[in-house]
Lab assay of single mutants.
Amino acid sequence: GATAVSEWTEYKTADGKTYYYNNRTLESTWEKPQELK
């Protein structure tokens, strides 16, 4: 079936920290989303 993983994109900030952005909800988070675990 369809999965929600594709909504999240992993980015890195200029200082090398990783964060996650959800293209559907426009939410961003420092925590790894449940969908990616």
Score class of each variant (00 low, 15 high):
Thr18His: 05
Thr29Leu: 07
Arg24Ile: 15
Glu27Trp: 03
Tyr21Ala: 04
Glu7Ala: 07
Lys32Pro: 07
Ser6Ala: 11
Lys37Gly: 15
Thr18Phe: 08
Glu27Ile: 07
Glu10Ser: 05
Gly1Met: 13
Tyr21Gln: 08
Ala4Gly: 11
Asn23Ser: 09
Trp8Thr: 00
Gln34Asp: 15
Ser6His: 10
Lys17Pro: 01
Glu35Leu: 05
Leu26Arg: 09
Ala2Gly: 12
Arg24Met: 15
Trp8Tyr: 02
Arg24Ser: 14
Val5Lys: 07
Ser6Lys: 09
Val5Ala: 14
Glu27Met: 07
Gln34Tyr: 10
Leu26Ala: 13
Lys12Leu: 11
Gln34Pro: 14
Trp8Gln: 01
Arg24Phe: 15
Thr29Gln: 11
Asp15Thr: 08
Gly16Thr: 00
Ser28His: 12
Glu31Ile: 11
Val5Cys: 15
Gln34Glu: 15
Leu36Asp: 08
Val5Thr: 13
Ala14Thr: 10
Leu26Asn: 15
Lys37Leu: 14
Lys32Leu: 10
Tyr20Trp: 15
Lys32Glu: 06
Trp8Phe: 02
Ser6Val: 10
Thr3Lys: 03
Glu31Gly: 04
Glu27Lys: 06
Lys37Trp: 10
Glu35Thr: 06
Gly16Lys: 01
Arg24Leu: 15
Gly16Pro: 00
Pro33Glu: 02
Tyr21Met: 07
Thr13Gly: 08
Thr25Met: 00
Asn23Arg: 07
Thr25Phe: 02
Thr13Gln: 04
Glu31Lys: 05
Thr9His: 11
Asn22Ala: 00
Glu10Phe: 04
Ala4Asp: 11
Ala14Leu: 11
Asn22Thr: 00
Thr13Val: 03
Tyr20Ser: 00
Asp15His: 05
Gly1Asn: 13
Ala4Gln: 13
Ser6Thr: 10
Val5Leu: 13
Val5Trp: 13
Thr9Trp: 09
Lys17Gln: 09
Pro33Gln: 02
Pro33Arg: 01
Ala14Trp: 09
Lys37Asp: 14
Ala14Lys: 10
Thr25Asp: 03
Pro33Ser: 02
Glu27Leu: 06
Lys37Met: 15
Ser6Asp: 12
Glu31Arg: 05
Thr9Asn: 08
Glu31Asn: 07
Glu35Trp: 06
Asp15Leu: 04
Ser28Trp: 15
Leu36Tyr: 12
Val5Gln: 11
Thr25Val: 01
Glu7Tyr: 06
Glu10Arg: 03
Asn22Ile: 00
Glu10Thr: 09
Thr29Glu: 03
Glu10Gly: 02
Ser6Gly: 11
Glu35Asn: 08
Val5Phe: 13
Lys32Tyr: 06
Ser6Tyr: 09
Thr13Leu: 05
Glu10Ile: 12
Thr9Asp: 05
Gly1Val: 14
Thr3Met: 13
Gly16Ile: 00
Thr29Gly: 03
Glu10Ala: 09
Asp15Asn: 08
Thr13Tyr: 03
Gly1Leu: 14
Ala2Thr: 13
Lys17Thr: 08
Lys17Asn: 06
Ser28Asp: 04
Glu31Ser: 06
Lys12Ser: 07
Ala2Val: 13
Asn23Gly: 06
Thr29Ile: 08
Gly1Lys: 04
Trp8Pro: 00
Ala4Phe: 10
Thr29Arg: 09
Lys12Gly: 03
Thr29Ala: 06
Lys37Arg: 10
Gln34Ala: 15
Trp8Asn: 00
Ala2Gln: 14
Thr25His: 01
Lys17Trp: 04
Thr29Trp: 04
Gly1Ala: 14
Thr3Ile: 13
Asn22His: 01
Gly16Phe: 02
Tyr20Val: 00
Asp15Gly: 07
Glu7His: 07
Asp15Val: 03
Ala14Gln: 10
Glu27Asp: 04
Val5Tyr: 14
Lys32Arg: 10
Asn23Tyr: 07
Asn23Leu: 08
Ser6Arg: 08
Glu35Pro: 07
Glu35Asp: 10
Pro33Asp: 01
Ser28Thr: 15
Glu35Gln: 09
Gln34Thr: 11
Leu36Cys: 05
Val5Asp: 14
Thr3Phe: 10
Leu36Trp: 09
Gly16Asp: 04
Ala2Leu: 13
Ala2Asn: 13
Thr29Met: 06
Lys32Ala: 06
Ala4Ser: 14
Tyr20Glu: 01
Ala14Pro: 13
Val5Glu: 12
Pro33Gly: 02
Tyr21Phe: 14
Arg24Pro: 03
Glu35Tyr: 06
Lys37Pro: 08
Leu26Tyr: 14
Tyr20Met: 01
Lys37Asn: 14
Glu10Asn: 02
Leu36Ser: 06
Val5Arg: 02
Ser28Glu: 09
Ala2Asp: 12
Thr3His: 12
Ala14Asp: 09
Asn22Gln: 00
Glu27His: 04
Asp15Pro: 01
Ala14Gly: 08
Gly16Arg: 01
Thr3Gln: 14
Lys32Asp: 04
Thr13Ala: 08
Lys32Ile: 10
Asn22Gly: 00
Trp8Asp: 00
Tyr21Trp: 11
Trp8Glu: 00
Ala14Met: 09
Ala4Glu: 12
Thr3Ala: 12
Thr25Gly: 01
Thr18Val: 10
Thr13Trp: 03
Ala4Ile: 13
Glu10Trp: 05
Thr18Glu: 04
Asn23Met: 07
Thr29His: 07
Glu7Asp: 12
Ala4His: 12
Thr29Pro: 01
Thr9Tyr: 10
Pro33His: 02
Gly1His: 14
Val5Gly: 12
Ser6Cys: 08
Glu27Pro: 00
Glu10Leu: 05
Glu31Ala: 07
Asp15Ser: 09
Tyr20Asp: 01
Val5Met: 12
Leu26Pro: 02
Lys17Tyr: 08
Glu7Arg: 02
Thr29Lys: 07
Leu36Met: 09
Lys12Tyr: 10
Thr13Asn: 08
Lys12His: 10
Leu36Ile: 08
Arg24Tyr: 15
Lys32Val: 09
Leu36Asn: 07
Gln34Met: 11
Asp15Trp: 05
Gly1Pro: 14
Ala4Leu: 12
Gly16Ser: 03
Thr18Gly: 02
Tyr21Cys: 06
Ser28Ala: 12
Lys32Asn: 04
Glu10His: 03
Ser28Pro: 03
Ser6Glu: 11
Tyr21Gly: 02
Asn22Phe: 00
Asn22Arg: 00
Lys37Cys: 06
Leu36Gln: 06
Asp15Tyr: 05
Thr9Arg: 10
Asn23Val: 07
Glu27Tyr: 04
Glu7Gly: 05
Ala14Arg: 08
Pro33Val: 02
Glu35Ala: 11
Thr13Met: 06
Lys32Ser: 04
Glu7Leu: 05
Lys17Phe: 08
Gly16Asn: 04
Thr29Tyr: 07
Leu36Ala: 04
Glu35Ile: 05
Lys17Ala: 07
Lys32Trp: 04
Leu36Phe: 12
Ser28Leu: 15
Thr9Ala: 10
Tyr21Glu: 07
Tyr21Asp: 03
Lys12Asp: 03
Leu36Thr: 05
Glu35His: 06
Glu31Val: 10
Lys17Gly: 05
Val5Ser: 11
Leu26Gly: 15
Val5Ile: 14
Gln34Ser: 13
Thr3Val: 11
Thr29Val: 14
Lys17Asp: 07
Tyr20His: 02
Lys17Leu: 11
Thr9Gln: 12
Trp8Val: 01
Thr18Tyr: 09
Arg24Asn: 15
Glu31Leu: 09
Glu35Val: 07
Gly1Phe: 12
Glu31Pro: 02
Thr25Tyr: 03
Asp15Gln: 07
